[in-house]
Design a protein around this nucleic acid. Sequence first.
DNA 1: AGCTAAACGGACAACATGCCCGGTTAGCAT
DNA 2: ATGCTAACCGGGCATGTTGTCCGTTTAGCT
Lengths: 213, 213
Amino acid sequence: MPRTRERADAVRNRERVLQSARRLFRERDPRTVTMEDLARAAGVGRATLYRRYRDPAAVAVALLDEHERRLQERLIRGEPPLGPGAPPEQRLCAFYAAMVELLEEHLPLALGGEAGAARFRTGAYNFWHLHVRVLLVAAGAPDPETLADALLAPLAPELYQHQRRERGLTPERITRSLDGLARAALARVTPDGGHHTNGRHHSDGTHRPTSPG
Amino acid sequence: MPRTRERADAVRNRERVLQSARRLFRERDPRTVTMEDLARAAGVGRATLYRRYRDPAAVAVALLDEHERRLQERLIRGEPPLGPGAPPEQRLCAFYAAMVELLEEHLPLALGGEAGAARFRTGAYNFWHLHVRVLLVAAGAPDPETLADALLAPLAPELYQHQRRERGLTPERITRSLDGLARAALARVTPDGGHHTNGRHHSDGTHRPTSPG
DNA sequence: AGCTAAACGGACAACATGCCCGGTTAGCAT
DNA sequence: ATGCTAACCGGGCATGTTGTCCGTTTAGCT
């Protein structure tokens, strides 16, 4: 916490930067947006920008953060099936659906801020990973740590863009496919069959999922 | 084909470029390698480099190509379970294992050439996608086109690096996890149970997989 | 040996980066 | 109200990369 509260001109400039950045990331290819572009569009000097953000990706992450936090809140304390209370498969499906919505809505920001290896270094990725890991543990899946990464991989912004633009897939179709993946990964045949893709058994079929945080 | 055969000096320079590029990608962070670096290391002018490669990624792709073709050959005409003849789950598992080997061996090149969105524009990705799609069709999975992307996503070079370096996972552990994913995605309970995660039935349990190409 | 087409590489202009430093201003205290 | 101080602002600089142009060299054919 700062010794004095944030200065008014600093607040004003940050608002201007974020506002024009949002537009910039949407209009051009987000990965070509440069610090100079952002500064010029906001009407501030480059050094002012560098003071708070180390690169364009950091600006995009700041813009995404708000939306991601909202989803995180719903995952922790929201209604089932997104929030606690539903069985793991359903929660994972709901999570996938929510992430597709987020990508659909804010793809330019995701491409600008969470492209490539940078994705794994964001706090958001850690959150998603922890969430999925918890669901996998609850379902009794083997090696949840590693599998969680694999289940998050299809949500990479670049892949989503490729599927939408190059393949012409609809968000609904992508969601449906992810649904199948979620059910398969957490599959557990109810009472009758003894089918288990998972390594070890779990006490019963009721669920008391723990959430991240 | 060229009107005249490739000139000797061109061949010599290309060899020099590829040779030093291989070393360069291995020694530094592959994504920081610049055209200037490659040219200087090879002892040629930048323009000479630009003649054949539009950016450093193209050089890395050229280096990867050889190894990828070898795997592609084995997928088409090799022994089962990698090649034709084995059931889809086993072929997918074998494919995953082979890809992990490839990543383990040539990660710097993969990071340099197939990072981010560029991955989807390579011919190699199209090949892998077609291969997996064929396996999914053979297994009767719904929407193979879309699901194939999802099943290839965990093989993104950036994720592999993250799992190896940040999480400290071994190639064996990653392979095992992918194995579980492969089995789950193509799961089909044999004769007794009626369990199907897949959408529609397939004539029988014997397999005559078609291969890409 | 000479010719031609191709390859080579030095050089240039444009641009992004990251940072330094002098000038400005907001917020607090008296 | 007024002055002080710390934080903020942004122009400008040195550096490094990018693509491309164009004059020169050279391999391969006749």
